[in-house]
């Protein structure tokens, strides 16, 4: 393991995060606060409780998940796309660093940013609603696993994209709708049976459900299923990244 190289990539990416701290932190925090004001305060007063949890507290895991998914993808995709776009990737390709180490540096940094962001959003949520975390170890595990998995997906998107607009396509047109329809703001048990079955094809349901279980011990699907789906998605992303480096697809001519 070329530890100096991994550290160099990791801290380089983290430095970029701290250079743009306001955009990196303030933007998701402000939008999450707005969600809490609209859903947590205005709507919650008319919603009552879901599965014994106040609506404001019920949406906390979903909102964290919404930010984690989109930010992991954005951070990782931008991280690898910029060197490709500017040409600075020559230095990484010519360095004595393996594909695994490169991914570890980039994805590690993107996932770290997401975990930090998740923590900041949880602290922000505390200002609006009272929530508790029943299984803190599982909560952290889900948070880290999801951050890593979606950072890997972001890395893949950053390699696939050949323009800045493509970087936005997946987070905006796929991930955000799937998260909204994945039980972030409701329990899928509230849906009619047909739509409940359809929703089960949405992978985000499993992520939100597992994450919510770690908070309140209640879930839409079994926690084992949530873990299995996350692990499966992680595995698929790893295979795709491995193939990218094996073939040099879009990285090397």
């Amino acid at each position: 393991m070329n530890i100096y190289s991994v550290r160099a990539l990791y801290f380089y990416e983290m430095a970029r995060f701290f250079r743009t701290l306001f955009q990196s932190i303030a933007s998701p925090v402000i939008s999450t606060s707005l969600y809490f004001i609209v859903f947590g305060s205005a709507v919650a007063s008319r919603m009552g409780e879901i599965e014994g949890i106040s609506y404001g507290a019920f949406i906390v895991p979903g909102l964290v998940m919404l930010s984690i998914l989109t930010e992991s993808i954005s951070n990782a995709s931008f991280g690898i796309y910029m060197p490709r776009f500017s040409g600075t990737i020559y230095e990484i390709l010519s360095a004595p660093i393996s594909a695994f180490e490169t991914v570890l540096g980039y994805v590690g940094a993107a996932a770290t940013k997401s975990v930090l962001l998740g923590a900041v959003i949880l602290l922000t949520a505390r200002l609006f609603v009272d929530y508790h975390i029943e299984h803190p170890i599982w909560m952290i595990s889900f948070l880290v696993l999801t951050s890593v998995t979606f950072s890997l997906l972001g890395f893949i998107i950053g390699v696939w994209a050949d323009g800045f607009e493509k970087l936005q396509v997946v987070p905006l047109l796929i991930i955000t709708p799937l998260t909204f329809l994945g039980g972030s703001f409701y329990s899928i048990h509230m849906l009619p049976p047909f739509w409940r079955k359809v929703t089960l094809f949405n992978p985000v349901v499993y992520l939100v459900s597992g994450f919510r279980w770690s908070f309140y011990g209640v879930s839409d699907v079994g926690v084992e299923q949530s873990l299995a789906m996350t692990a499966l998605f992680l595995f698929i992303c790893l295979i795709v990244v491995w193939m990218i480096f094996k073939t040099g697809h879009k990285i090397k001519a």
Partner: peptide, 9 residues
Amino acid sequence: FSRNLFGKP
């Protein structure tokens, strides 16, 4: 950064 990237302390 370049020095570290090439595996040097």
